[in-house]
Design a protein around this nucleic acid. Structure first.
Lengths: 345, 345
DNA sequence: CTGTTAGCGCCTTCAC
DNA sequence: GTGAAGGCGCTAACAG
């Protein structure tokens, strides 16, 4: 480090405010903390001094005394995914009125970065966390969560920690969709979704298989692609499915990134929906209705997920004790013109 | 507050580590700060104690001494807008290797929330900020930035503060597009974009008018809608334009949210692109190629914006002095099949 | 109602 | 190479 002291321009402290207001630091502190035991006239003088100096209490010093930072951390796998951004938005609407600041951190689906975030959150004494892990099998992440010592709300993951969780329903909507497709005469349906290492991926595969079993349609594992969530992956898997020896007549792209990639692959192959291929997307209702024909989509209210998660967190922040709570939120199937009977049998 | 002390489970302190390692806190501190003057054997004992206790240094206490938090704040108008999310991603790739944590905060385009964020950042002694304001004319926000005392990088805004800025080119691409449309025979072109209160909105209008003037085409202010950025707004303005008495034959939806909304309005009106209406979008190249016909889009590399912004910030963090620097990044026009000659003249 | 004071956990001289 | 001690800015308990 250079000789320059870090931190830039020194900020005014409580002492300077006290000096310019002609009171003691204790009084300034009382005004800053909105304690009632201050004479109106004194309070006014202090407030004036604060405004004049542009005083903001030093959060580090305050945190050291109070063990509170009024800061909530939100761990997201991928900031550019609107699904998570909407959760943040929903959580914010609940947390802000209570005076908490919500800060989002994107791990880019790296468990190592997730651990770094959790440690950073612990160092920074954040009051609570909402986390979406990118891999349930990464033990390091789970250990860190266990160490946190502050309330943590987990989103849509099954991990062995004592934490409140908000789940989304994934099996049922997939089942509904697959039943629809079977009814239309489809027998080979491709499923592209997230990895088995996270609940959404697992559950979708379960729902998928269940629908096929119920209908007595044999399961071809080649048609099931549960891998990393990304547009690239979605595109690659879709391309592979559609150019394979015995391609599916319908594609389920379950995941917003996967949806984009899969749709792109279909476009690149010059296939027409639903004549050449039936297509179902997920988690981006808007895209689904902007393209032609509009695309059937499995949709869920992520803003509500955020609200619920924040609600669970707030309860704990207010001292609620007791065993972990679980909330399950539903998903909708928005039926649109992208599915039809397969061309030939 | 209840009697329960906040902060949850107490975290191990440097004292406990010192005790279990059988050394003094000074030695533990030296190990934690990776100071070289520690005997290898002692260091090993301390490291073991840290691991055993799951010790993480208290950032508040550390910040109090060092005036550094290794935290960068990123103020975004709207987290659900991929444009900003990509910037965060780009900035992160530059900041993380230097040990900084990047935390994003979404203001939901509220200047009041922006002020709250800036104050929170100052209280929390963040080391630097990247900010995208939602309104250049909000003086409160600008005053807060001036008070920060740490480096701030401003994105694509013209505000009277001593700060480095990363600009995107907005005039030139709009001009290019308008020239194209004029050449095809369009004379009435609708422009929907952000408010005049932010640079992108202003510059796009300027570029738009310039192209028309150069061609000697009269300017009809009714056709220019520089308002709030949102899908709803984009939809409403587009609907209004297309159902008006003398509708445009081409629509420029300059802004990603506006793009979605405008396209939706076109769909709802049952108009076909480019037969009934020529259409140009912005900032979402992917959507542009997923719909049919593919849509001409003004695109820019927001990840690069983030990288550049982080670079400017890092320089300052490392002590670079001197006048504000400006970086201008270009935009591309991706010509696709959504524009054609107007039906009738 | 207001001033004084003791730490919160850590880093950093300064002795040893 | 290691221990002891002061103080960063603030809150809270205690006098007055």
């Amino acid at each position: 480090m250079s000789g320059k002291l870090p931190g830039g321009r020194r900020q005014p402290t409580i002492h300077e405010v006290a000096a310019t207001a002609g009171v003691s630091i204790g009084t300034v502190s009382r005004v800053a903390s909105e304690s009632p035991r201050v004479a109106p006239e004194t309070r006014a003088r202090v407030l004036a001094a604060m405004a004049e100096l542009g005083y903001q209490p030093n959060a580090a010093a305050r945190a050291m005394r109070t063990n509170q930072t009024m800061t909530i951390g939100f761990l997201i796998p991928d900031m550019t995914n609107q699904v998570f951004a909407r959760v943040a938005q929903g959580a914010e609407t609940v947390l802000a009125p209570e005076g908490y600041m919500l800060f989002a951190f994107s791990s880019n689906r790296s468990p190592a970065r997730e651990i770094e975030f959790l440690q950073a959150a612990r160092q920074r004494q954040m009051d609570g966390l909402i986390v979406t892990l990118s891999d349930e099998t990464a033990t390091g992440t789970i250990e860190e969560i266990a160490r946190m010592g502050v309330p943590v709300v987990v989103l849509d993951r099954e991990i062995p920690v004592e934490a409140d969780v908000v789940y989304s329903e994934h099996m049922q909507p997939i089942e509904t969709v697959v039943e629809q497709l079977l009814q239309l005469g489809h027998r080979r349906i491709g499923l592209i979704t997230a990895s088995h290492n996270i609940r959404p991926g697992r559950d979708r595969v379960v729902g998928f298989k269940r629908a096929l079993e119920k209908a007595g349609v044999p399961i071809d594992d080649w048609l099931i692609r549960a891998r990393t969530q990304s547009a690239e992956r979605g595109m690659a898997e879709t391309h592979d499915l559609l150019t394979g020896p015995n391609p599916p007549t319908a594609i389920l792209a379950a995941g917003s990134d996967i949806f984009y990639g899969a749709l792109k692959a279909v476009r690149l192959l010059g296939l027409s929906i639903p004549d050449d291929i039936s297509f179902v997307g997920a988690d981006d209702a808007l895209l689904g209705e902007l393209v032609y024909p509009p695309i059937t989509v499995i949709d869920r209210d992520m803003v509500e997920v955020g609200r619920q998660a924040a609600g669970l967190l707030l309860d704990r922040l207010k001292g609620l004790d007791g065993p972990p709570r679980r909330i399950m939120l539903g998903s909708d199937v928005l039926l649109r013109g992208s599915i039809a009977a397969p061309k030939r049998r």
